[in-house]
């Protein structure tokens, strides 16, 4: 379970003067869903291409399933599926014909190929459209076909570059559901995205990329803790807000910030789940609690706050 399937040490890629990836250390274990986050041009796609041996690293080492993608690209690519951001198919061929081509390139025998293709089409729900030309497919269908294309090689690792970009919210949710299914089958998934709430919904761990470096890494809670300070945000509504109440909340051990949101609402940021303490404090201060609910830390906020801080730092440095 704890086997390391993806590992990079000091991985660097330079295009002339431009450093696309800068000394990246990344470790992903079997069965994990790892999210690469970051703005465009942060080095996510370059990292992915190096993991697959599609571009050579300038420096550093990569190990994928214990193999070096530069020296043993065939073994790596036979066991790792890649769903590129720019996903294209042969438009004049049907979905099934496109998959047959992939199966042949993987050296699958005919019966085995046909069996796996049927399975994959079944799994991603494209059975009815299987014999229609891809030119008639919608964006969502193409994305699902791309996943079927990856599944027929029965990969141990699937790497997805911006898998939900440009999809309808409904289709995107279905797609995330499929990712959860894959995770349940012990398939390791590395996905890059800038659609944060979706990443948050499926990823075990995330890494935040900024200018070729992975600046933050960990679970969403850990990241929130680091960047936002308080990772738990408790919203309360009281009947008569007053100063004493606010002070009482602030004095609680573990509370980072108390902010008045509305005439009757407060936001309490805390380092741990303090719903019970907050409720007691309100009661003890003589207030009447009308509602209390806790919001899980959101990656969007982590992301926004991180880059805000970054800009402030950059500004002061200049």
């Amino acid at each position: 379970m704890d086997e390391i399937v993806l590992e990079t040490r000091g991985l660097t890629k330079r295009y002339g003067d431009l450093v696309a990836v800068d000394h990246l250390d990344l470790t992903v274990r079997r069965g994990e869903v790892f999210g690469l986050l970051g703005p465009n041009g942060a080095g996510k796609t370059t990292t992915i291409l190096m993991l697959l041996g599609l571009t050579e690293p300038t420096e550093g080492t990569v190990r994928v399933l214990g193999l070096d993608p530069v020296r043993q690209p065939l073994s790596v690519k036979a066991r790792v599926g890649y769903l590129p951001e720019q996903l294209g198919f042969y438009e004049n061929l049907t979905a099934r014909e496109n998959l047959i081509y992939t199966a042949k390139l993987n050296g699958l025998r005919r019966e085995e190929a046909y069996r796996r293709i049927d399975e994959a089409l079944e799994k991603i729900g494209l059975v009815e459209a299987a014999d229609k030309p891809v030119s008639t497919f919608s964006r969502g269908m193409r994305q699902r076909l791309g996943l079927a294309d990856v599944l027929i090689k029965k990969p141990e690792i699937i790497i997805m570059d911006e898998p939900t970009q440009g999809l309808d919210p409904g289709v995107a949710l279905e797609f995330l559901e499929i990712i959860r299914d894959l995770k349940a089958q012990e398939i390791t998934i590395l996905l890059s995205s800038h659609l944060l709430h979706q990443v948050q919904a499926v990823c075990d761990r995330v890494g935040l990329f900024h200018r070729g470096r992975m600046v933050l890494e960990g679970t969403v809670e850990e990241l929130a803790q680091q960047v936002l300070g308080g990772a738990y945000r408790i919203h309360i509504e009281v009947e008569k807000p007053h100063h004493v109440l606010e002070e009482a909340l602030r004095r609680l051990d573990g509370v980072v910030r108390v902010e008045r949101e509305d005439t009757r609402a407060y936001l309490v940021e805390a380092r741990r789940d303090m719903r019970a303490e907050v409720a007691r404090a309100v009661h003890e201060a003589g207030g009447a609690l009308l509602s209390l609910d806790m919001e899980l830390p959101s990656l969007d906020e982590v992301y926004a706050r991180y880059f805000e801080q970054q800009e402030v730092n950059d500004g002061s440095a200049e």
Binding site: L52, L54, P73, L74, S75, K77, A78, V80, G81, Y82, P84, Q86, L87, G88, F89, T102, L105, N106, G107, G146, D149, K153
Partner: peptide, 9 residues
């Protein structure tokens, strides 16, 4: 990219 991510050179 889909083509070259298959196990071929």
């Amino acid at each position: 990219s889909r083509l070259l991510s298959q196990p071929i050179y």
